[in-house]
């Protein structure tokens, strides 16, 4: 663990950094009484770190750490509306919640939907994100500058507002999409985009991708700007075209940032909630039940099966936790 912690900083940063400061300023305080007259009584590094982190640690203990453990406790307890009324402590339920969860067709279906949803989102966002990042990276194109200004706009839209907008866009009888496609001559009959079980999940990916694509574009664009220019010049001298430059230079150099985008986008796509709530509420039938929606519905709709909801949320957290560990251990430091 300690080795892992240190690897986050540049190698050797801890040692030299300490020496660069006034020798004796911090070590001296610990080993012998302060020799020189000190104007203001100064806290040691350790004390200062404790003092400065106390408020953050306190808040995180209350809002992050404690609920995580409490959710674990709930997932091993029998908690429904009756137990909820009676209050703490809740009757122990063993692994029953988890057993029921994995026998629940709807939960397995929700998990499957979540994976399909995340897979589509990530593949589309990486491909489209890279393409658009390359596009706005073009110098001397007037329109590319316009695109660059607009690119962040979807990030500013509240997810639930985005959901409502797409309710109107997708609406069967009155919707904006059917109107536009009709006017452009693409369709003659209006299509029920979110009402058909076969297409509902795919219809759901579009608004989500629209809203979250800026993040991917932005990271790719930032990475593109940091690529070494001389490599491209050397390649051009050797007669390499644009496509070969992309395939043999850009893509390999971008691999770390692509990995970061894949991990971040996958874990956040696993949590899609607002657009589901707005557009389909899991329907039609159970075609768009996803993991967060399952946990939310089980916990906060009758019969308020909090125990089962907590167990399902924990399964989701563990899946994402695996991605998080990979991100922290392997990617975060390397991709700069």
């Amino acid at each position: 663990m300690a080795g892992g912690a240190r690897s986050l900083v540049a190698p050797g940063a801890v040692g030299p950094d300490r020496n660069r400061r006034h020798p004796g300023a911090e070590e001296g305080c610990v080993t012998r009484p302060a020799p020189a007259p000190i104007k203001v009584r100064e806290l040691s590094r350790r004390q200062l770190a404790l003092a400065m982190n106390a408020p953050s640690v306190l808040l995180m203990l209350v809002v992050l750490v404690f609920p995580l453990f409490y959710a674990l406790y709930l997932s091993f307890s029998r908690v429904r509306i009756g137990e909820l009324r009676r209050g703490f402590p809740f009757p122990f339920y063993g692994f029953e919640n988890y057993v029921r969860l994995f026998q629940d067709e709807l939960f397995l279906h929700s998990l499957q939907n979540t994976f399909v949803f995340a897979l589509i989102v990530v593949v589309v966002e990486v491909v489209l994100g890279l393409a658009i990042a390359l596009l706005i990276n073009q110098q001397g194109l007037w329109l590319s500058r316009v695109t660059r200004v607009l690119i962040l706009l979807p990030y500013a839209i509240p997810p639930i507002a985005n959901g409502l907008i797409w309710i109107y866009i997708y609406n069967f009888k009155l919707g904006f999409l059917n109107r536009s496609l009709f006017q452009l001559g693409f369709i003659e009959q209006y299509i029920d985009w979110t009402g058909i079980p076969e297409t509902a999940l795919y219809s759901l990916t579009v608004p989500y991708i629209w809203r979250t694509l800026p993040f991917a574009i932005l990271l790719f664009h930032a990475a593109l700007q940091g690529l070494p220019k001389d490599v491209y010049e050397a390649a051009r001298v050797d007669g390499a075209g644009a496509w070969r430059c992309f395939w043999h230079i850009t893509l390999p150099l971008m691999r770390p940032i692509i990995a970061v985008v894949v991990i971040l986008r996958t874990s956040f796509a696993f949590l899609v909630f607002d657009e589901v709530l707005a557009l389909t509420q899991g329907g039609p039938g159970d075609a768009t039940w996803v993991a967060s929606w399952f946990s939310y519905k089980k916990s906060f709709a009758p019969p308020f099966n909090i125990g089962l909801g907590a167990a399902s949320a924990y399964v989701l957290a563990l899946v994402i936790g695996l991605l998080a560990v990979f991100y922290v251990k392997v990617l975060y430091r390397r991709a700069q």
């Binding site: 709930l74 939310y296 989701l316 957290a317 991100y327």
Partner: peptide
């Protein structure tokens, strides 16, 4: 990476 829903169930209780 902690999903909000995991926190919200206990915070609600």
């Amino acid at each position: 990476f902690v999903p909000i829903i995991v926190l919200m169930i206990p915070l609600f209780v």
